[in-house]
Deep mutational scan, measured.
Amino acid sequence: GATAVSEWTEYKTADGKTLYYNNRTLESTWEKPQELK
């Protein structure tokens, strides 16, 4: 079967924080998503 690919993209901001963006739900979060833990 196909492996579930994470929908989350990780961005590094200018101040060194990490922003997570979900390509499916168009949601963005500063918290690390469950799927990435």
Rank of each mutant, 00 (worst) to 15 (best):
V5L: 13
P33N: 01
D15T: 07
E27T: 05
S6A: 13
T25R: 00
Y11E: 04
Y21E: 05
Y20M: 00
E31N: 05
K32N: 06
W8E: 01
Y21W: 10
N22V: 00
L36C: 06
E27K: 06
E27A: 04
D15K: 03
T29S: 12
T9Q: 09
A14M: 08
K32L: 09
K12Y: 10
E7S: 05
L19R: 06
E27C: 15
K17M: 05
Q34F: 11
E7A: 06
L26I: 02
A14H: 08
T9D: 04
W8K: 01
T13K: 03
W8N: 01
V5C: 15
L19M: 12
L36S: 08
V5Y: 13
V5R: 11
K17V: 04
S28G: 05
S6Y: 07
N22W: 00
Q34L: 14
Y11V: 14
P33H: 02
R24L: 14
K32Y: 04
T13F: 12
E7H: 07
E27P: 00
K17N: 06
A4G: 14
A14G: 07
A14D: 09
A2D: 12
R24G: 07
N23E: 11
L19D: 03
T9Y: 10
L26G: 15
G1P: 12
V5P: 11
W30G: 06
L19I: 14
L19A: 07
W8S: 00
G16Q: 02
P33I: 02
K37E: 14
D15I: 03
Y21A: 02
T29L: 05
T18Y: 08
R24I: 15
D15Q: 06
L26K: 15
Y21M: 08
A2V: 13
T9F: 10
S28R: 09
G1Y: 13
Y20I: 00
E27L: 04
T18L: 09
L19E: 05
W30C: 12
N23P: 06
E35K: 05
N22A: 00
Y20A: 00
G16I: 00
Y11S: 06
K17Q: 08
T13D: 11
T13A: 08
R24K: 14
W30D: 10
P33K: 01
Y21P: 04
A4Y: 07
A2S: 14
E31V: 09
K32P: 10
G16M: 01
G16T: 00
A14F: 04
Q34N: 14
E35Y: 06
G1H: 14
A14K: 12
K12Q: 11
N23K: 11
S28H: 11
P33V: 01
W8P: 01
K12G: 03
E27V: 06
E27S: 03
K37P: 09
V5T: 13
E10H: 04
S28L: 15
Q34I: 14
E7G: 06
W8M: 01
T29I: 07
Y11H: 09
E27D: 04
G1E: 11
Y11N: 04
K32T: 09
A2Y: 09
R24P: 03
L19G: 08
T25N: 02
D15M: 05
L19H: 05
Y21R: 08
E35R: 03
E7L: 05
V5M: 14
D15N: 08
L26D: 09
G16N: 04
V5H: 14
L19P: 01
K12D: 04
E7R: 03
S28Y: 15
Y11G: 03
K17S: 06
E31T: 07
N22F: 00
N23W: 12
E31Q: 06
T3L: 10
A4V: 14
E35H: 08
K12M: 10
E35V: 05
K37R: 12
P33Q: 02
K37Y: 11
N22Y: 02
E31Y: 04
E35M: 06
